[in-house]
Simulated assay, not measured.
Amino acid sequence: MTVIRKSLAAAGCALLLAVSAACGGSGKADAETRARQSLDRLGEWEAVSVTARIEAPAGRIHEFLRRGHGRGTRPAVSRADARLLARAEVALSVGADRPLKDVGDGDRLDTAASLGFGGPDLAGCRSIGTDFYVRADWTGLAGETGGRHDTVVQAASLAASADGLPPSLAAARDLFRGRWVQIDPEEFDHFARAVGGKYGERAQRLANSVDLLQSAEAQHRLIRSVRRALDRHAGFRDAGRADGAERIAVSLPARAVAGDLSAALEPLEERAGGIGFAWLEEAPDREVTVVLELRGGTLTGMVVDLGQFLREEDSGGLGELPLALDIAPGEAVAVKAPEGARWLDPQDVMAAVLYGELGSRAR
């Protein structure tokens, strides 16, 4: 697992824990009561959106990644990837057919996400019931990543000749043109193989993650388990005001919470076919803090300093590295099945690759 995944997964876990804690507990502390009520207000909507970004310069992000990389034999962290992270923005929307506070254990939560780098969205996915859809602007992604990822580069080259594909490969043509297609997430590794990229463990973990998102039972089991774990650990306190927002700090003993969460996720480990939660064991043995931002009594944002997840001996002099989440009712990304999305099989992608190769040889 890369340091990027370890650090951001840990930070994302802490954010999830803070939200769940705000929903539970006895409400004895005034700050906790206000935090819980801010979540209740969001629950009155049928959809809620979160936009995430790292508010730090690329040089500081690179230093954070370098320090967290450890003293192993893996390749050095790329400055180019740090620059990309500094510009990246991810939007996630969650929706249901009723107010979120009324969603029961058997009800599904649909999701949609997009990725951009300061301009139009370059990639997106939607999980609607048991159906999963994806789209990507391969040329745009290749430009942003500078040709460092084989799968993206190969897909971008295929996009340039997609118009010449026959009607029988219409779904593959749509994929390379940047249109929505419907796929089976379990086939991610085959898609990567078809366009010449790396596949295997990473693709399977991604497929398992999507599988969890699509399972209402898994979603609600995770939420309940996290709430129970956080009831024992989270502490709330007023943190003043900034930029017109009321701030509440949520303190979490990271190692204790990680242990409880690891135990809570154990049933999912078997179901997910080894998705892996070992990274929880690397949580720092100290308190970390997540800051909630409230406006008009509604939760509108969360901020966590990623530097808290470094070892103490590696964190000195780094400066803050805020992961900021803007939260709002409604859909920042449409949570519905895209119209006209064709079903795409991995063999269609392989056929499109072979068709393109034969065409280039004939010219």
Rank of each mutant, 00 (worst) to 15 (best):
P338S: 06
P75H: 12
T51L: 04
A341Y: 04
A160W: 04
A56L: 09
V152F: 11
A254E: 03
A88N: 00
A258V: 10
T130C: 03
G273T: 03
F309E: 04
F188C: 04
S7N: 12
D314Q: 08
A10M: 07
Y133H: 15
V19H: 10
A22N: 08
L325Q: 02
A112D: 13
K28R: 14
G119S: 15
S360R: 15
S157P: 00
G70R: 04
G147N: 04
G296D: 09
G147E: 13
A249P: 05
R271V: 00
T298P: 02
V48C: 06
A192Q: 12
W45N: 15
W45H: 14
R36H: 05
R60D: 01
H149E: 14
R177N: 15
F176T: 11
S78H: 13
V134C: 11
E246L: 07
S38V: 14
T2Y: 01
A192R: 13
L222F: 09
G95L: 03
F191I: 14
R41L: 01
T151H: 09
E331H: 03
K101S: 13
L42V: 10
L230Q: 04
D150F: 04
V250S: 02
A249I: 01
A352R: 01
F277T: 10
A86T: 05
G119V: 13
L294S: 00
A328N: 02
A245G: 10
A162F: 02
R221W: 07
R126L: 07
A203L: 12
S168D: 10
G297T: 07
A334K: 14
A245Y: 10
